[in-house]
Design a protein around this nucleic acid. Structure first.
Lengths: 126, 126
DNA sequence: GATACTGGTTTACGTTTGTATACTAGTATA
DNA sequence: TATACTAGTATACAAACGTAAACCAGTATC
């Protein structure tokens, strides 16, 4: 971002651009989609059972929740614990690695709040 | 996140959870998907013409680039300028509002870099 | 005249995402 | 016995997302 050059040095810019994008693609591969970040946020507030989570993450279907939780578990962001009660209860919680996303989520929430204010108070500009 | 309560107060947690998620959903409505953030990052490095951008954002098709640029322009994150040259050249640049995403993008890139290191040096843990 | 550049659009297609409904089994309640 | 809770899975389907390839006009180059 700091490399503002008067004459466009296309090839240098392109390499800079690609190296800037790569780690973001790595992050997005894991986080992108409609539901993963909302699920992580819900679990940051409190560990949850499947049906509780289903109610917290409004609008998601059981099928999608199940699928997204599997992917998050595979990437070690979420932990699945089965309790030998009857009927069986399954508890999902955020891992330490999952907590490392806190700064990303906080920035996203800050921006989302500012954006919502902008839409509400200056809709003509957006 | 700071509200850790010993006995789970489910309903309070649920409300906390939902208010935490809402602004994130607002942000994701605009940013989610595979390409929007990579396009914004590319334009943060330097304003670009369509074909240049097409080369910078590796893997995207012209159709998707066209569609994503329209949406970003609608949300005032990107500006489209037509220059009366021959043949016509079209330049895309980031707006001031688009620049307000810089903290989000930086956190995402930091996390992506750490995640890539983790995968490369400790693949068994992920 | 043929080719390639410009910024896209069109067509046809496959994949992913998402929805609604029904269903499983084991336990508790009415 | 009937119902409802638990945590999901199975099925069928629609919509969104994404891809490859061809195509447009207007200009410049070979």
């Amino acid at each position: 971002m700091e490399a503002v050059i008067e004459k466009p040095v296309i090839k240098q810019d392109r390499n800079l651009c690609i190296t800037h994008i790569l780690p973001i693609r790595d992050a997005l591969d894991i986080l992108s989609g409609k539901w993963k970040i909302p699920i992580i946020v819900a679990l940051c507030v409190h560990k949850r059972r499947f049906k509780e989570l289903h109610r917290d993450v409004q609008g998601i279907t059981a099928k999608m929740l199940s699928k997204e939780l599997k992917e998050l578990e595979m990437n070690k962001l979420v932990k699945r614990t089965v309790h030998d009660t009857s009927p069986v209860t399954v508890e999902y919680s955020i891992t330490e690695y999952g907590h490392s996303l806190t700064p990303v989520i906080n920035e996203l929430r800050d921006w989302g709040m500012k954006h919502r204010d902008k839409i509400i108070y200056h809709p003509e500009e957006v």
